[in-house]
Design a protein around this nucleic acid. Structure first.
Lengths: 338, 338
DNA sequence: TCGCATTTTGGCAGCGCTGCCAATAGAAAT
DNA sequence: ATTTCTATTGGCAGCGCTGCCAAAATGCGA
């Protein structure tokens, strides 16, 4: 007689290595060797083992494997967000390289919160990953300490303006911002405003802002106005931000946006308002989103090698490269909006 | 004297539970109980253990924990792409819910290839995850077999038009496409074209296309033209696709796009060409991207609850809910482009 | 102070697989 | 046929943690 409540209990009829060995009539270690194609074994044995594996539908247990061999082949990503396309792009680049080498990706999202970052890093470290990849160079004391103590590789991504813990792959946000400022001044813009998002939490945006302002000041043309949205960047925030800034400071001739999402919002506002770009108002972004190349006027921006950052980071880990910093640079796109 | 080649060898000074127990002067199981806050122990013991943990910088090894307790608290996502914002959105929704319950997310990208999907599912299953989340209902024979045999929960996302293996969370793509067709006909468009991307690999896009055509035909107004881009969807592909379609079939009065990315491309083409929307040409998309709400004219489209799909899927897994299908529906956005 | 019910605690056998090492089987050489 | 060497193979001890169970400590009422 079945106990009703028992219906939910699903007994996993998990097939184990030992059962495969039994079925194939060989020893456990032989099955292990065949499956990992490691060590030597005869063709006959190989076939018998594979047949048993097939027949039983055996799926190796990597938890046990990782414990026994002290190698998880897991790479942990602790990223601020999945809404900002930058991070999926990096994941994509790294994921492709890692999958080819049979590594797996685990991720956690911090929402730009250092406290959450620390918690997530601890949680990831519990899986003894081969490497931990983080955004940026700013981390809490505790995070850095754990990472150092963990003994696993650490890769800090998308920022080179500071000191890395181990490996760093990216580009200089400050240099990108300076290049943007110089470009805009060269083009003759004189009353430049800034529309950005939360630059305390997004430290890379903060660094760009600081460097941009400094570059303008160095040329004696300080920032003529700014509007900072309190939350994350988005097209809508960019549109709103520009609207507010123009209401306060109408006579600007160019706007530097914290990134392309924001810039597109500004671009759309101008289109809706009939503000002609760039003659009445110039727009400059950051990131080089694909979308921003296809707008009626391609956006003037900085293109960052996001996918490449992921790929290079992954490759360094696979190669067990010595600690180093790799600058993948950026490209200034002279679009038609500035 | 150091051997040069030895420098790379990093001996992980991994602290173990046993060492913590030793340091705290208690038994291993006591440490385990304290750390998991499970079972009973005195306050004094608790403090001593925590102090030792702190002092040694102990990070529990979840690989060992998972092996011993047969519970990985890992949820695997096998998704087609990270470029299409849909999937990061789902990950975000699910990730938030899972993290709150101390589950971790592992992911792999299939690039819309069923063969790769099968390989990725096998790789994920090797970690004995609590659940596997997949996009859509179409999977290879082998994938389905493995999944069924695995005994772990399976959640199929973003598609309800077909048969689910276990849990399914999403909405009907066919219904969304029908709603779109009916809306466009109701608005009076008569020569409707389609601009899409690879609809064999992206089966959900394929289902929408089929349902859309069928709905038009049912009203005696069959599709007046189509242009299908061979690769993934993108803003650029949408722009190019519309350009090509109009070259072949100039007298269309509305276009149904395979998704909002494509639609935005079409929108930008019209702006660049001075084609007035919607009077000369109407545009209708699918997905309800945030960006499409902020363009000078908000895009007419179907908004899908992507983040909610992730959240609900995760919650079902956490609740160990019985097999079921959950329809989260969609919303038709009457924008200004159709 | 003693007996009994609890509350705490420690010991230890695995979880499923890998790595080491010894044992066996074959192959080649004498 | 015998020996030597090499290609194969199996046994078994962990990897670090959890779950079970018995042992020890504690609390309480009589």
């Amino acid at each position: 007689m079945d106990i009703p409540g028992n219906m939910n209990i699903k007994l996993q009829p998990t097939v184990t290595l030992a059962e495969v060995a039994e079925a194939a009539g060989v020893g456990e270690s032989t099955v292990s060797r065949v499956l990992r194609n490691h060590g030597s074994f005869s063709q006959k044995t190989h076939d018998r083992v594979m047949a048993a594996v097939e027949r039983l539908g055996y799926v190796p247990n990597r938890i046990a494997g990782a414990l026994a061999s002290a190698g998880s082949r897991l790479v942990a990503f602790v990223i601020p967000s999945l809404s900002n396309i930058v991070f999926p792009d990096v994941l994509r680049g790294a994921g492709g390289v890692l999958e080819a080498s049979h590594y797996q990706s685990v991720f956690a999202v911090t929402d730009y919160d250092p406290g959450r970052e620390e918690a997530m890093v601890a949680a990831m470290l519990a899986w003894r990953p081969s490497a931990v990849m983080l955004a940026g160079l700013e981390h809490s004391e505790g995070t850095a300490k754990m990472l150092r103590a963990s003994g696993c590789r650490v890769v800090e991504l998308l920022d080179l303006d500071g000191t890395a813990l181990d490996l760093a792959v990216g580009f200089s946000n400050a240099a990108a911002a300076r290049a943007s400022a110089e470009f805009m001044l060269r083009r003759g813009y004189r009353r430049i405003g800034y529309v950005g998002h939360d630059l305390v939490r997004d430290t890379r945006a903060g660094k760009r802002f600081a460097a941009f302002c400094a570059a303008l000041e160095a040329e004696g043309k300080p920032l003529a106005g700014r509007e900072i949205h309190a939350g994350a960047s988005s097209v809508e925030a960019g549109r709103l931000g520009l609207e507010r800034l123009l209401a306060r400071v109408p006579d600007l001739d160019a706007i530097y946006f914290s990134n392309d999402d924001m810039a597109l919002g500004g671009y759309f506002l101008c289109m809706a308002r009939g503000i002609s770009i760039p003659s009445q108002l110039a727009i400059f972004g950051y990131n080089g989103l694909d979308m921003a190349r296809v707008t009626p006027q391609p956006l003037s921006t900085i293109r960052t090698p996001r996918v490449a950052v992921g790929q290079v980071a992954a490759q360094l880990v696979l190669d067990d490269a010595p600690s180093q910093t790799i600058d993948l640079g950026f490209e200034l796109i002279e679009g038609e909006t500035a």
